[in-house]
Simulated assay, not measured.
Amino acid sequence: MRFFFIRVLDVMLALIGLIVFSPLIVAAMVAVWWQDGFSPFYVAKRAGRGERPFEMVKLRSMVKNADRTGVASTSNTDMRITRVGHLIRRYKLDEITQLWNVLKGDMSLVGPRPNVLQAVANYSSEEKKLLTVRPGITDLASIVFSDEGEILRGSSDPDLLYEQIIRPWKSRLGLFYVENRSILLNIRLIFMTIIALVNKPAALDGVHRILVKSNADPKLIDVARRDKPLLAFPPPGMVDIVQSHHAS
């Protein structure tokens, strides 16, 4: 029954969000189209619940066909990001259009972020549990690693760096959510996601309280504080640090 109420909350808030933000979405669409004359949308194929692929709708922040370069992770210095795209990414405008996917039932407002099919194929058996729920627009990891582009800034191999220092903790935070999800947790995470846009330290404090109260892994609690450099670590269910972003 609680999952039914989560879905009801998803639909209600997605409808309200699309209506409220429609002027902003239209303005961003015009700006993206004006800069290069191509579609303002980027339709990304992602793995959904049960590993079923779906098409996630995003406002395009990169040059056309940027995904054909084979680089999945993006740093803030990525030359593929357009001038308008930097603004879209800074204010998370590319996430708003995903409310359409929430209405369709592909996604939830809160849940592990959907990943590309190639990355999911390399999941450990433990990480596969992330695919037992609908992927979301936001979650604990979205708050903790909202500065992902900055973390990867200047890396000669952002995909590998992502696999070594971000994926291990994003997956663990996602698994924590899967094991503890509830309508109350969803509401708290939606609220903290909004707070993170203007006061990330306050949002991180909220994440810390959730993890501590639920007796999460002390290592995860420590990393989620984001007050120390991120170190390479094996993904959950694996014993070795990833040495290649093509490794399984």
Rank of each mutant, 00 (worst) to 15 (best):
I194W: 13
R134D: 07
L184R: 10
G17D: 11
F41E: 02
I195M: 08
G48M: 07
V110E: 14
E148F: 03
P23H: 04
L131E: 10
S142A: 15
V120T: 08
K129S: 15
R90N: 04
L211K: 02
I25P: 02
P40E: 05
R209W: 05
V30M: 03
V144E: 01
Y162R: 13
N215D: 10
Y91V: 10
M56R: 03
F38E: 06
V144Q: 01
V120A: 10
R172T: 02
E51D: 13
P218E: 10
H208F: 10
V43E: 10
P112G: 03
K64D: 01
F176E: 10
D94A: 01
P236A: 13
D78S: 12
P168A: 09
E55S: 15
A196H: 11
R153K: 12
P112H: 02
M79K: 08
H208R: 14
Y42E: 02
M29R: 01
R46E: 12
V102W: 14
N101W: 08
L175M: 08
N215V: 00
I137N: 11
R46D: 13
I151V: 14
V43M: 12
N180S: 07
R226N: 00
R2F: 07
I88V: 11
H246S: 05
S108C: 07
T193C: 15
G50Q: 09
M192H: 13
L231I: 12
E163G: 03
